[in-house]
């Protein structure tokens, strides 16, 4: 079954997109895009809060930087990068399809982009832990 055919039926309930049990690739891609998007929105506003330390002053910012270099926070950065990469690449496919491009090939495009994403995430993880 192709991606577009799996998405033909609109969810019967508003939040049904969250439940991807027994769904095909299209619904997984759709849910993945939304989950990563919502996660990135939460991160964006957390980022604003963190940046407020710059206004507090040099000592506050530099102590935050020390905390941000801890292995736990770096692991969180890997999760952040995974969200960015998945959302960005999946969003590229959604935009292509929205303009009528690659609609028939969208399942292959999705898997191809996720493979590219896996490589990018591996490279990003190495960078995060070695810089």
């Amino acid at each position: 079954m192709s991606l577009h055919s799996t998405n033909r039926a609109r969810p019967r309930k508003p939040l049904q997109w969250i439940d991807v049990r027994n769904r095909r690739t299209g619904m997984w891609a759709f849910a993945l895009n939304r989950v990563t998007g919502l996660g990135l929105v939460v991160y964006l506003f957390l980022h604003f809060v963190m940046l407020s330390q710059l206004f507090v002053g040099r000592a506050a910012w530099d102590s935050f930087v020390a905390l941000a270099r801890s292995p736990l926070v770096l692991a969180f950065d890997v999760v952040l990068f995974a969200g960015l990469i998945i959302h960005g690449l999946n969003g590229f496919r959604v935009a292509l399809n929205g303009f009528g491009l690659g609609v028939r090939q969208q399942k292959a495009i999705f898997y191809g982009l996720m493979a590219v994403g896996a490589v990018l995430l591996a490279a990003s993880t190495v960078l995060i832990f070695t810089i």
């Binding site: 991606l3 577009h4 998405n7 033909r8 609109r10 299209g26 891609a29 759709f30 895009n33 496919r93 959604v94 935009a95 292509l96 399809n97 929205g98 609609v103 969208q106």
Partner: peptide, 10 residues
């Protein structure tokens, strides 16, 4: 035809 893109469309 509805795609994942058109789910978000206007």
């Amino acid at each position: 035809m509805q795609t994942t893109a058109t789910i978000n469309a206007p």
